[in-house]
Structures are given as structure tokens and as C-alpha cells.
């Protein structure tokens, strides 16, 4: 049984001045299943719709069309959730300095959501619980940090606290949107490790959004690759990293700077196209392997091997 089922999800934003209205297809027909307890990775470059997906799934943005089923009940259609479902879906944002109220002390920022969701009976118990989490996260002594304001903490410390803030509510489903991308390398590991420890302990399911393929390969069970709002590949993390099929995933792999192994670079056409044009494959304008069929029609996402789906005519030639 899947925890979250997404069917043909679309999110269009309208843009432009009144006369030349056009729509930006941030998500264009995305379908997938997330099994309970897994870490589901979403990979893509800026503008591919990965953040939009996180916002729609955490019900902060309404979808244009499509269906979202969470634990068997329908989520799509409205942003009004019952408080219990609201508690079960939490989100961690990229920039912790922008996701904390600058005028509240850390203690207040952590207590407030617990009060609203009736976690524990009184503030003393809640405080006890917060201190326990902080101690596990390496804050020594934990109570010294509770009286501080967000700006008095470093990025890594504050991001660890925002993970704690989300996890204190015991969510079933957690969206982590680029949660380490603005942190320094040496503190990144401690934040990722805290997230992994907590979600393993609480058996939380995670949607892990990142642009860093090597990090996703490290952390995730499944990876979905998005390009301009379309799913181009979906498989286990191991397969995506070891034998990517879609040309875009292969290009992405070949260009990820790594100190471990120098890879052969795949040449792509020079200038990136930022919006999809016409009815062809979204990646066709940059694809080094494209042929006539790619210009005509967007390939469907087809399961080519067990647990490995790809949207590319190269694999659908029959």
C-alpha cells in the first residue's frame, strides 16, 4: 500500500501582461507512488518544478488538476485540511533564517506548533521533549540555545532546529526542500545525518528535493528526475546513479563535478531553453541523441525494466 499516490498532477502559473497571457507549466502530468518509510528523491535543475511539487504536496499551493491521495483519502481539490492531516504533513525549507520568526526565541518557535497540535499535556512536558531532541541533535547544553533568537545561531544549527521543529509533531510525511543546499560542506553532513536518524526512528516518509545528484544517490531509496515539469525518469536510487537511461539524467551525471571519478562529458547543445515549445519532447532542444520523432511528440513514461521508468523515444523505438 502506498502512503502517497499522485496521479497526473498539473500546476500551471499564468504569467505575462494582460494581453499576452501565457502559462508556465511548472508541473505537467506527474504521477508517482511513495511507499511508507522510504526517502523519495526529486532531482532537477532550477525551474524544473521540484519546489512546486513540494509546495503542492504539502498543501501550500493548490494544483491546477490531478489527484493526490494520502493514506487512502483524497487531498487534492482543497487547501483546507483537517488538523490531524495537517500535522501529519510537514515541510522543511531551504533557508532556515527565513522560516523562523525573527522576533521569537527558539523555545517559543518550537513550543507554539506543539501547543496548537496538542502534543503533550503541558509546557513543562513539551520543554522536556524539546530538550531531548536537541540533545540528540548535538546541542550542548541544550537549554542554552532555547533562549536565543534565530539570528544568533549559525545556518547549520538553525537548520537542525527546523528539522527538530518539524519532527516534534511526529509527521507521517515530511517534505525536505533543498534542506542543505545553502550550508557549508562540513556542516552539511551533520544536518543530513540528523534528518536520516530522526526519520528512521520515527518511520517518517520523506520527499527529498535536491539538485545534487550525488547527495540524492546517497540518501534516497527512489529517485525521480524532473525536467521542465515533466517526469523523465523514475527508478531506485541505485539504478539512477549506476545505469541512468534518459539522456538528461546521463548528461546530469556526466556534469556533476566530482573529485572521485572523472567522467566523460556528454555534449549538449549550447544554450538552454527555459520553456517547453511545441508538442515535442521537453529535452529535445538540448538532447544530443534526438531524432525526428522527438520533435513531433513528447514520449510517455514507460516502465522499461522492472522498477525503472523512462520517458524517451530511444527506448520505445518498436
Amino acid at each position: 500500500m502506498s502512503l502517497l499516490n499522485v496521479k497526473n498532477l498539473k500546476k500551471y502559473y499564468s504569467a505575462g501582461l494582460i494581453k499576452k497571457r501565457y502559462s508556465v507549466k511548472a508541473l505537467d502530468g506527474v504521477s508517482f507512488d511513495v511507499v511508507p518509510g522510504e526517502i523519495f528523491g526529486v532531482i532537477g535543475e532550477s525551474g524544473c518544478g521540484k519546489t512546486t511539487l513540494g509546495l503542492v504536496l504539502s498543501r501550500l499551493e493548490r494544483e491546477t488538476s490531478g489527484e493526490i491521495t494520502f493514506k487512502g483519502s483524497k487531498l487534492s481539490g482543497t487547501l483546507k485540511l483537517d488538523p490531524e492531516t495537517r500535522r501529519q504533513i510537514q515541510i522543511i525549507f531551504q533557508n532556515p533564517y527565513e522560516s523562523f520568526d525573527p522576533r521569537l526565541r527558539i523555545e517559543q518557535s518550537l513550543l507554539l506548533p506543539m501547543r496548537i497540535n496538542h502534543i503533550c499535556d503541558n509546557d513543562a512536558e513539551r520543554r522536556e521533549k524539546i530538550l531531548g531532541y536537541m540533545k540528540d541533535a548535538g546541542f550542548e547544553p541544550p537549554d542554552a540555545f532555547l533562549n536565543r533568537y534565530p539570528h544568533e545561531l549559525s545556518g547549520g544549527q538553525l537548520q537542525r532546529i527546523s528539522i527538530i521543529r518539524a519532527m516534534l509533531l511526529k509527521p507521517t510525511f515530511l517534505v525536505a526542500d533543498e534542506c542543505v543546499s545553502m550550508l557549508d560542506l562540513s556542516v552539511r553532513a551533520s544536518v543530513v545525518n540528523l534528518l536520516l536518524d530522526l526519520v528512521e526512528r520515527e518511520r517518517t516518509t520523506v520527499l527529498f528535493i535536491t539538485h545534487d545528484l550525488s547527495l540524492a544517490g546517497h540518501v534516497c531509496d527512489h529517485i525521480m528526475v524532473l525536467y521542465l515539469g515533466k517526469m523523465v525518469e523514475l527508478s531506485t536510487a541505485k539504478r539512477i546513479v549506476e545505469s541512468p537511461l534518459h539522456p538528461y539524467t546521463r548528461v546530469l551525471m556526466s556534469y556533476s563535478p566530482s573529485i572521485f571519478k572523472k567522467r566523460e562529458k556528454i555534449n549538449v547543445k549550447k544554450l538552454g531553453v527555459e520553456t517547453a515549445i511545441g508538442s515535442g519532447c521537453v529535452f529535445e532542444p538540448r538532447c544530443p541523441y534526438s531524432f525526428e520523432k522527438c520533435v513531433e511528440q513528447m514520449p510517455p513514461l514507460i516502465e522499461i525494466e522492472p522498477n525503472h521508468s523512462v520517458a524517451c523515444w530511444l527506448y520505445l523505438k518498436t
Binding site: 562540513s186 553532513a189 545525518n193 550525488s214 544517490g217
Partner: peptide, 19 residues
């Protein structure tokens, strides 16, 4: 602390503490 494709899924090691 750099994640790598080749490694098995395991804990990343970082550097504890701050500047």
C-alpha cells in the same frame, strides 16, 4: 564529507562544531 555516487548508502561524515 563529500557524498559520492560510488559509495554505498551510509552516513556522511562531517566536521562537528562551527567556525
Amino acid at each position: 564529507s563529500l557524498p559520492d555516487f560510488a559509495q554505498e548508502k551510509k552516513k556522511l561524515s562531517g566536521i562537528p562544531g562551527n567556525l
